[in-house]
């Protein structure tokens, strides 16, 4: 059964067609990478799936059922980590995570355990009483993730979660996403960073002009641009050098 089934979705902004008969199937347990240049329709597609945006045509099913704005039973099984850090500036780290967790879990005792677990998961134990403004960019991203995953959702949308974070935080975030997948969550991951997508995604969908232009595993996609294998001797990237010199340990 598909966890996400999108069929022939059309979304227009006036004359601009943002999604042009876009279709997508995501199986349970997958880590799907949604790749594409700016304006290709990635975020629009996710916002339509999450029922934030209206669409002109097509259908969306989550967990085999039609998704509508009022399907809170389906929303309860979803986690969302948006591109921008979206938390209450005046609440502490713990209060923010508790607020978002409470949107899904009403039992206070269970929620406390989940919040503690989420804090530990993103490594914010030393910052529970901090307000977001006092946190560095990387820590804010981790708080954003904790707010989205604290309730242990079955399906999680990550919209470019590693934008503007240092390599240590990026590694930590990617490891965390893989851990969530190992724990049973299906992941939808959008990014501009090819190496990230290649590292964690089991399947990749490449979008352009609101359409799917390629769909497959990393090796399948590589096979699409030529049958012959190339042997490339590649120097270490700057990212490799940076991590080698500064280590992989998380910083504030």
């Amino acid at each position: 059964m598909s966890v996400v089934h999108v069929e022939s979705l059309v979304k227009r902004y006036g004359d601009l067609t943002a999604l042009d008969h876009f279709s997508l199937d995501i199986a349970q347990g997958e880590v799907l990478g949604l790749l594409g240049p700016n304006g290709s329709g990635k975020t629009t597609a996710i916002n339509c799936i999450l029922q934030l945006l209206t669409y002109d045509k097509g259908s969306i099913k989550l967990f085999g059922e039609s998704m509508t704005p009022a399907r809170y039973d389906l929303k309860r099984r979803i986690g969302v980590v948006p591109q921008n850090v979206a938390v209450f500036e005046e609440l502490t780290v713990r209060e923010n995570i508790d607020y978002f967790c409470a949107m899904y879990v009403s039992d206070r005792g269970r929620r406390k355990a989940l919040v503690d677990e989420a804090i530990q998961f993103v490594g914010l134990e030393d910052y529970v009483k901090f307000r977001p403004k006092k946190l560095s960019g990387g820590l804010q991203r981790r708080l954003n993730i904790a707010c989205g995953v604290a309730h242990k959702p079955e399906l999680i949308f990550f919209d470019e979660p590693t934008v503007a974070v240092d390599p240590q935080s990026r590694n930590s975030i990617l490891e965390g996403i893989q851990q969530l997948n190992r724990d049973g969550s299906t992941i939808v991951y959008t990014s501009h960073y090819m190496e990230e997508v290649e590292e964690i995604c089991t399947r990749i969908v490449i979008m352009d002009n609101g359409r799917t232009i390629a769909n497959g595993s990393s090796s399948e996609l590589k096979g699409m641009i030529g049958g012959e294998k190339k042997v490339i001797i590649q120097e270490p990237t700057l990212n490799d050098v940076f991590l080698e010199l500064t280590g992989t340990e998380l910083r504030d």
Partner: peptide, 21 residues
């Protein structure tokens, strides 16, 4: 403004949550 998906990031984040609008 913090409840409206079209007015703030926080509103959008809350709008996809499982608490009814």
């Amino acid at each position: 403004m913090r409840t409206q998906a079209n007015l703030s990031d926080l509103g959008a984040r809350r709008a996809v949550g499982a608490t009814s609008r």
